[in-house]
Computed example of a mutant assay.
Amino acid sequence: MAEICSSFPTTGSLYFWAAHLAGPRWGPFASWCCAWFETIGVIFAIGAQAYSGSQALQMIILIATGTNKGGGYFASKGVFLCLYMALILIWAVVGGLLVIVMLPLVAPSTQPASYVFTHFETSPESTGVSSIPYAVILSVLLSIYSLFDYDASY
């Protein structure tokens, strides 16, 4: 499946291939499950990576101050929890600020805020979408996929 998806890149390829392989009867359900597993995986992956990073920092501190038998500092549960929370906050704040600050700096041209929040391209002739509220909901979903993870890149 990975070879097929990489040979024919499509937007939402995981969901498309899950539906295609499950068949017409179970395809929508397979796509839905795939999307929810992806969302849950992304959410838990952030926590798991922060936990692993905290463990690595704990071991670096222990080795830098001496080994466990040599009187080195082994972080307590409270200190470990603070390391874990600090990593999550750093990733959230620094990552968010990096996107918010760098995006306007590297964008070749920008539109004014009035254009961004009031102009909608629904293209009903090509998409069939003519409802502006529906287009707004779809645009929010697109940003979620773009910011959290795009088609299971990890």
Rank of each mutant, 00 (worst) to 15 (best):
V101F: 06
A19H: 00
S7I: 05
V42S: 00
G70L: 04
T67K: 06
A75F: 04
E3Y: 10
F29Y: 08
D151K: 02
Q58I: 06
L81Y: 02
A113G: 13
S146G: 13
M1Y: 15
Y134A: 15
L21M: 13
C33E: 04
L57H: 08
A22C: 04
A92Q: 11
P112R: 09
F29E: 10
S131P: 04
L98S: 13
D149R: 07
F120C: 08
S153R: 00
A92G: 02
F148L: 12
G23Y: 03
I43W: 00
M102Y: 06
I144W: 01
Q55H: 11
E121T: 13
Y154R: 09
I100W: 14
P112F: 01
S6E: 07
I40T: 13
V129I: 15
P104N: 00
P108F: 07
W26S: 09
F117Q: 08
G41F: 00
A35F: 04
F80V: 03
V101A: 14
Y154F: 12
T122K: 10
L103V: 15
S130M: 03
V99R: 04
V93G: 11
A30H: 07
V106Y: 12
V99L: 14
F44N: 04
S13W: 09
S7G: 03
S54H: 06
A45Y: 06
S7Q: 10
S114Q: 09
L97A: 08
Y145P: 01
G78N: 13
A113F: 15
H20L: 08
W32I: 14
V129W: 01
G78Q: 05
L62M: 12
L87C: 05
T118Y: 05
V106S: 07
Y134H: 12
W91T: 14
T10I: 02
L87Y: 01
Y115H: 15
I90Q: 07
N68E: 15
L142N: 09
Y134D: 06
G53N: 00
S126Y: 06
A152E: 00
E3N: 14
A86C: 13
